[in-house]
Amino acid sequence: MFNWIKPIFFLLVTSAFLSGCAKDSANDKPLPQRPLLVIPEGFPEVAFPEDNPFTKASYDLGKKLFFDPILSRDSSISCGSCHQPSLAFSDRIALTSGVDDAPGKRNVPSLTNIGYHPYFTREGGVPTLEMHVLVPIQEHNEFDFNIVLIADRLKKSEQYVAMAQSAYEREPDAFVITRALANFQRTLISGNSAYDRYAFQGIPNALNAAELRGMNLFFSDELACSSCHSGFNFTNYTFENNGLYEDYIDEGRMRLTGLETDRARFKVPSLRNVELTAPYMFDGSLQTLQDVVEHYNSGGYAHANKNEEVKPLGLTNTEKNDLVAFLGSLTDYEFLENPNHYPN
């Protein structure tokens, strides 16, 4: 069961940096801090589980854990090492290495609006955000660790013990770690891009001419981009093959289901802040948005499970550029610059 949470306006404690820099020159009053959890216009509310409601104490603990390399076996990488706030909680590497430079297997997805996803991983095999916390911890090519051993480390820290007691009234353990990290990640909501200002906030000049043309192409029946990249989050969360290859090394959703009809199908990603999350596709094989548009314009390679909407489009160079411009309009600079998303 889930509780639907109304926008909650908790404020961060002013950090030493901000208290020194965020002064109004006229009256010497501190500038107001940004809310931790805000639901943008046009967005539904975020569902928090009954055993993990949003609180500032849970948020603070989750944020501290997110940026702390204590979660990895050799304390060399953190969640924030791969999910960088300045890149919409993604990174710039095709396949990011884990501890001991273990080679990555898939491209790091953005965590933008992750709290709205109904399931997690590229094959959709993890039903909750709390459970998903275990995935990078246990994966040998990521943190290569054990959550019980992480809890033992945290129990040696007076600060972590105090924060766990404040948030969940118990010592650091698997319950606390998974809940706190999920709590923080559910606040990573992006909904103030130029497109949002046009579509949801009623600002008619929020998009320029090229972006408007690209938007009309994107939502057209001829291109059918929005048949998969639909809704406020630009994804329908289904599993599709887009003809990236004829033969795939990665089995995709078949890895979970064992069904041949799921071979090389991957969860449709959100396009929020997509211009910042290069390289693209599940393996990071396409370097730019121009490359992505060219791929779809070509119709992709033949594959038994390819979505029937992926077919040659015959776009002109102007139309390709307009599509890229529209995708750029999904960038939310307020989200990228939000100090709540960075380590204290």
Results as ranks from 00 to 15, higher is better:
Leu149Pro: 04
Ala164Leu: 01
Ser166Phe: 11
Phe184Gln: 13
Ala209Trp: 04
Ala210Asn: 14
Gly214Trp: 14
Phe184Gly: 04
Arg197Phe: 10
Tyr248Gly: 13
Phe232Thr: 09
Gln201Asn: 02
Phe143Lys: 06
Gly243Met: 07
Ser190Arg: 04
Asn141Pro: 10
Ile249Ala: 13
Arg213Gln: 03
Asn236Glu: 10
Asn233Gly: 05
Lys156Cys: 09
Asn205Val: 00
Ile177Asp: 02
Gly191Lys: 10
Phe200Asn: 14
Lys156Arg: 13
Asn208Ala: 01
Glu240Met: 05
Ile203Asn: 01
Arg186Lys: 12
Leu217Trp: 06
Asp144Ala: 12
Pro172Asn: 03
Val148Glu: 12
Leu188Pro: 00
Ile147Met: 09
Thr238His: 07
Ala174Arg: 15
Ala180Val: 10
Ala199Leu: 04
Thr235Phe: 14
Tyr160Glu: 08
Ser157Asn: 12
Phe200Tyr: 09
Ala164Gln: 06
Ser226Tyr: 15
Ser190Leu: 13
Tyr195Gly: 12
Ser227Trp: 04
Asn146Ala: 10
Arg153Phe: 11
Thr235Ile: 07
Glu142Val: 08
Glu169Val: 04
Asn242Trp: 07
Tyr195Glu: 06
Asn141His: 07
Ala194Tyr: 08
Ala164Met: 02
Glu246His: 15
Asp196Cys: 10
Ser166Lys: 15
Asn183Phe: 07
Phe145Met: 09
Thr238Pro: 00
Gln185Lys: 15
Glu142Gln: 04
Tyr245Gly: 11
Ile189Asp: 03
Ala151Ser: 09
Ala199Gln: 14
Ile249Gly: 05
Ser230Ile: 01
Leu207Tyr: 01
Gln159Trp: 08
Ser166Pro: 06
Gly231Ile: 13
Arg153Gln: 15
Thr187Lys: 03
Asn141Ser: 06
Ala224Asp: 12
Glu139Arg: 01
Phe232Gly: 05
Glu169Gly: 03
Asn146Glu: 06
Ala164Asp: 05
Gly202Cys: 04
Ser226Leu: 06
Ser193Trp: 09
Val148Gln: 04
Ser190Pro: 00
Cys228Phe: 07
Ile249Leu: 05
Ala167Tyr: 15
Glu169Trp: 01
